[in-house]
Amino acid sequence: MIPVAFDYVRPESVDAAVALLGERGEDASVLAGGHSLLPLMKLRFAAPELLIDIGRLEELQYLRLDGDEIAIGAGTRHTTLEASELLDTECPLLPAVARTVGDPQVRHRGTLGGSLAHADPASDLPAAVLALDGTVVLRGPRGARRVPLTGFYTGVFSSVKEPDELLVEVRVPRTGAAGWAYEKFTRRANDWAIVAVAVVDGWVGLVNMGPTPLRASATEAALAGGASIEEAAALADEGTDPPADSAGSTEYRRHLARLLTRRALTTAGR
């Protein structure tokens, strides 16, 4: 299978990419690693007229401390997250989650920004950044803005990012020694999660429990109110709207959300 024909440009800078998006954002797709976009294009589920390749923009590839936060360029690959000593010390959830994404070949190409922008509710990293209370930085013709991930997603494959905006940076807090865990439940190691739960410092992110990545708010509130792990985990599926498919009924996903939250909280030691 092959994509429908398209135009291709490789802008030399973020400014140039943003300018292009300003002109042709409605017809264009941004190409980074391409491991979400190209499979859709090959199956002809997507057919953008223009691909704007930001995959080589070095100005989007960085990982640095910035006060209480870590600033990560959107073009940072999963494989870089995995190997980052800075993250291992300052935000160990993120590299651990990155290690569970796809397979090594996918992680060599896929980027953090691409994964977040794609807005797939079954994807690992969005829920992790959500659990971290992270922020994304969007740049467009009207300038840059910071959007907390809690307010970023609006539905399956959709977010508040406008077609002329580029996701340029992801910011996550330094969680240091806070307990964390990622429980990913799949049939095959390389499958998308049926359900996954990211926990860090009492915050809980859910994968594939609704049209967007979600926070288990009731669980978080219960934990903050002094509830036991068992009590809090039993609330993990509150307010969720999980899909049903051959891998799992909605009821099964709700059960998994509670089970995996309990296990993740236990591993994280709260």
Binding site: F185, R187, I194, S246, A247, G248, Y252, H255
Partner: peptide
């Protein structure tokens, strides 16, 4: 014998 089936 998928996880779903075993659980059910």
């Amino acid at each position: 014998a998928t996880p779903l089936r075993v659980w059910e």
